[in-house]
């Protein structure tokens, strides 16, 4: 289930999956939210599709929001559906509001912040 990208340290999303009902969750949770059974850590797929999205058109209240140093610009946020059957809340970077579509293929990674998605390469090779 793990793609090539998930081997990159610190970049793949680390979730967990229940051995009984196969429910995958993010972030990892030792107990399955569906059946309360034990769940094991798992690296989630690095590619998925946009399940839903919106655009944050105005600057959220600060704090907690920390606007970029060059000022607020509207950004796209959405849920990315992964093959494991889990939808991940992510900021969609490099996607213009007028271009985002449900079903659009994206790659998803995580660093210090919330999960981050980018347009997948049209040829299917993740960037």
């Amino acid at each position: 289930m793990e793609g090539a990208l998930t081997a990159v340290p610190g970049r793949a999303l680390r979730g967990s999956r229940c051995s009984r009902c196969e429910v995958a969750v993010y972030p990892a949770d030792p107990a399955c939210p569906s059946c309360s059974g034990p769940s094991a850590p798992v690296s989630l797929s690095a590619t998925g599709t946009v399940w839903t999205w919106t655009v944050q058109r105005y600057a959220p209240k600060s704090p907690p929001y920390a606007a970029p140093e060059d000022g607020f610009r509207p950004f796209v946020v959405g849920y990315v559906e992964l093959p494991e059957g889990v939808r991940i809340l992510a900021v969609l970077h490099g996607v213009r509001p007028e271009d985002v579509r449900i079903g659009m293929p994206v790659t998803i990674t995580t660093g210090d912040g919330v999960p981050s998605a980018r347009l997948a390469d049209p040829a299917g090779v993740t960037t």
């Binding site: 399940w51 839903t52 999205w53 919106t54 944050q56 600057a59 959220p60 704090p63 907690p64 929001y65 920390a66 950004f75 946020v77 959405g78 849920y79 809340l89 900021v91 449900i102 210090d112 912040g113 919330v114």
Partner: peptide, 21 residues
């Protein structure tokens, strides 16, 4: 805390994403 600092603690985003789908 990153969900706050990156601007995702906004209830209206959820309503928008639910009706969008």
């Amino acid at each position: 805390e990153a969900y706050g600092s990156e601007g995702l603690m906004v209830t209206t985003q959820f309503f928008a994403m639910k009706i969008q789908r």
